[in-house]
Write a protein that binds this DNA or RNA. Structure first.
Length: 621
RNA sequence: GGCCCCGUAGCUCAGCUAGGAAGAGCGCUGGCCUUCGGAGCCAGUGGUCCCGGGUUCAAGUCCCGGCGGGGCCGCCA
């Protein structure tokens, strides 16, 4: 346990005991939760409201609090103060500073040992176009969540689901087969090339269909950008009707699901190339997955068939208009509660098998969920998926429940996040309109460069590298510092803000702290430190001490933004300290050692925190 | 039409799970022309917490009813 955690627990325990002597039972957890800093520092470091207990005892709140403040004694708390109905505590910073700083300068500061096995599936983009800005939020949230949970003590596995089965890839492969070349031109990044072919294919096909009025303008837009590809595909498909094309796509899809050699070769050639592109993009921003799962493998391994067989045997699925469908008639309030499905939400039937015999995404996702739980022996599976997929995710949990996988259904978490908007632009992969991750990173670096030129202490290659670290950090921070329930509007001037509440600001603060340590050129020696001077820096020391509670809370609530906010606050306090209190020029050796320990603790905490957000903490910039 | 999310300072947001003492950054105004890195520091400015009811000693937070914005309701995902 950590210094401040123990101290809070001890304080609350004493409060509980004192209340018990007065004759009321208090819930320790409830007291602990209500413990919060008062509005201003002269009122105390922490306060706990006791109105409720005063009422139970038929006392005036102040009288109760006053009485307790005189009775309770806690080592590490130097004073208790009664303010209205609040019992406020002043921490004896001199008393706790040694242990607190000892903990804070360790490599593993802020880690926990809470057992648990969790799978985090994230990013999982359709392999038909490059990663785009929507995936960026998904990726950085998922990556940070995995790191936060590992830090919490969990065994964590990250997985990427390759959707190589289904209508979307089939459209792409179909178009490529018609064009007679599966591979992209040498000079082009594969995912980008396929993205163009995919959007053109969609437009060419759909402008023959019932929604042609909508699609013709899109096709013309694409024609102006990629005239050769549009022309080529139009030529190849000119004799075919919309219905014929769809029949051929459906046949191709079936051939792949049936693992026919030629289809396999085509699909795999294409999808592998796209995945190479994904990996290349993710490498630039430092995101890697532990396991890559291929949707087709689920089909070929017989897992999907097993699900279908089971559904039929259990009598939960029936044939309707030639398709195999689950209806969720069994759904009641208890199941809704357990599977976190809103009371009034109507759940439409789920089609498991189309009338043409092919399966759907959600069907395969049932098999995939089972695989994720079983292969890793997971307690919980977290799917990082956009909020717009709430309904299919609910259907997935219900289908698992109906099939008898109740534990999996209950422990499958849809980590739903809101969209990322670009002002004045409606993104659409099918329409070839998107902000790609690759472009985003390049553009950010380009914009950051002049700013780095102005300020950086570095030269040459190192300076180039810092521009990338700052640019990527800024994007990550923008994605991860806002709660997942709020849509993000992506604006460069907000994302590339270098002032407070930004990754560059925190990175800079870290570099400053490390700079002091580098110049001091001596090992921090806590035995020589004079802790009687700690009181003068109470705010900063207490803030450093909060870090473990923040990492724990971030893990429990799956909330990376809590770390982001904390790091920003810690940076603010450190910068104030930096400005007012010279460290290396401190004449008093004991005091200097204390200050050095604080600086080291700050540097370490900032680095650890940035790690949890997946953001690099450079030592110079 | 049904359901989900959001609505807090001019702007971007924290606080809502678990009721308890209205917060931060940006912006704006003025100062620090820099003894360890000014991506910084100091001071000031700014709020019917969308509206209306209810529960409570206490509501930004819980409940009910509205309003505004976004999303979803497909043999797509």
């Amino acid at each position: 346990m950590y210094a401040l955690v123990d101290l809070k627990n001890e304080f609350i325990k004493k409060v509980k005991e004192a209340l018990k002597e007065k004759g009321v039972e208090a819930d320790e957890l409830e007291l602990l939760r209500s413990l919060a800093p008062p509005p201003s520092p002269e009122l105390g470091d922490w306060g706990v409201p006791l109105f409720k207990y005063a009422k139970m005892l038929k006392m005036k709140p102040y009288d109760l609090v006053k009485e307790l403040s005189e009775k309770i004694k806690v080592k590490g708390v130097k004073e208790l103060k009664a303010v209205g109905g609040y019992l406020n505590a002043f921490v004896d910073v001199n008393e706790i500073a040694k242990r607190l700083l000892e903990e804070a300068i360790k490599e593993d500061y802020g880690t926990w040992n809470v057992p648990g096995r969790r799978v985090v599936e994230h990013t999982s983009a359709n392999p038909v176009h490059p990663l785009h800005i929507g995936h960026v939020r998904n990726m950085f949230l998922g990556d940070s969540l995995a790191k936060i949970l590992k830090n919490y003590g969990n065994e964590v596995q990250t997985r990427f689901y390759v959707n190589d089965v289904g209508r979307q890839v089939t459209v792409l492969v179909y178009a490529l087969l018609k064009m007679g070349r599966l591979l992209p031109p040498e000079e082009q990044k594969p995912d980008h090339w396929y993205g163009i072919v995919y959007s053109v294919a969609n437009a060419v096909i759909e402008s023959k269909g019932p929604e042609r009025d909508e699609w013709v303008p899109i096709l013309e837009e694409l024609r102006s950008k990629y005239p050769e590809i549009v022309k080529e595909l139009e030529e190849k498909l000119k004799d075919k009707s919309y219905e014929e094309i769809n029949k051929e796509i459906s046949d191709l899809m079936k051939r792949y699901e049936n693992k026919e050699e030629e289809a396999v070769k085509a699909f795999r050639t294409v999808v592998n190339k796209v995945i190479d592109g994904f990996k290349e993009s993710m490498e630039v921003v430092g995101v890697r997955h532990d396991v890559w799962d291929w949707e087709s493998e689920l089909v070929w391994s017989g897992m999907v068939d097993m699900i279908l067989k089971k559904a039929k045997e259990l009598g939960i699925a029936k044939v309707k208009d030639g398709a195999l469908v689950i209806e969720f008639n069994f759904l009641n309030d208890e199941i809704r509660e357990r599977l976190r499905i809103p009371k009034g939400l109507e759940i439409p039937p789920l089609v498991l098998v189309r009338s043409d015999g092919t399966t759907l995404y959600t069907t395969r996702d049932i098999a995939y969920t089972i695989k994720k739980f079983e292969e890793f022996n997971a307690d919980e599976v977290i799917n990082v998926i956009a909020t717009e997929q709430r309904l299919p995710q609910a259907q997935l949990r219900l289908a698992l429940w109906a099939l008898g996988y109740k534990r999996y259904a209950e422990n499958l978490i849809h980590y739903a996040y809101e969209m990322v908007n670009i002002p004045g632009m409606k993104m659409s992969g099918r329409r070839g309109r998107m902000i790609t991750l690759d472009w985003l990173v390049d553009e950010a670096i380009k914009r950051v460069k002049p700013l780095v030129e102005e300020r950086s202490v570095l030269q040459g290659e190192e300076r180039e590298k810092i521009a990338r670290v700052v640019a990527v950090g800024a994007i990550k921070y923008a994605m991860v510092s806002v709660s997942k329930d709020k849509p993000i509007t992506f604006k460069w001037n907000e994302v590339l803000n270098f002032e407070r509440s930004s990754a560059p600001y925190i990175q800079y603060t870290h570099a400053r702290a490390v700079g002091i340590l580098r110049k001091a050129n001596e090992e921090v020696n806590l035995d020589k430190a004079d802790f009687s001077k700690a009181e003068a820096h109470r705010e900063l020391i207490l803030k450093i001490g909060e870090f473990p509670e923040v990492t724990r809370k971030a893990a429990e609530d799956l909330a990376p933004e809590k770390i982001a906010v904390y790091l920003s606050e810690l940076s603010d306090l450190f910068n104030k300290f930096y400005h007012e209190h010279p460290v290396s020029k401190e004449p008093d050796e004991g005091y200097k050692q204390l200050k050095l320990a604080m600086v080291k603790a700050v540097a370490n905490t900032l680095r650890r925190g940035l790690d949890l957000l997946g953001i690099e903490a450079p030592e110079r910039m």
